[in-house]
């Protein structure tokens, strides 16, 4: 297991729920939990992943997510069992959608 921490600037999100969970920690899948964070204009992400050595790819996927979405003011926790970058992006979008009540 590898633990990774990231912090990216992002436009502030407008939460509709106190927290949102997406996905399941199953083979090739992951769960993403979004909660309110401490900094309104940053998205702080902690990842626990079963696959080692993919830190650069995680960084790129999350940087792109933070750039494209208003995801600031959030603390995102990820438990991963080897999801592909495409699945990670999809779930991040879903989780944020739920957190913001469909407004991304």
């Amino acid at each position: 297991m590898e633990k990774l921490e990231f912090r990216f600037p992002a436009q502030p999100a407008t939460p509709a729920a106190g927290a949102a969970l997406c996905g399941v920690v199953g083979s090739g899948n992951l769960e993403i939990l979004i909660r309110p964070g401490d900094e309104a204009d940053a998205c702080v992400v902690s990842v626990k992943t079963s696959a080692r050595g993919f830190g650069r790819i995680w960084e790129a996927v999350i940087a792109e997510f933070a750039a494209r979405h208003a995801a600031g003011g959030t603390r995102i926790a990820i438990n991963d069992m080897g999801a592909t970058p495409a699945v990670v992006s999809l779930r991040l979008g879903q989780a944020l959608g739920e957190y913001t009540g469909g407004v991304q």
């Binding site: 297991m1 920690v25 992943t49």
Partner: peptide, 15 residues
């Protein structure tokens, strides 16, 4: 919090 028993075995748990 995910299970600490899985964490010591290096396995990501589920919330």
């Amino acid at each position: 919090e995910p299970s600490p028993h899985l964490a010591v075995l290096d396995i990501p748990g589920a919330f």
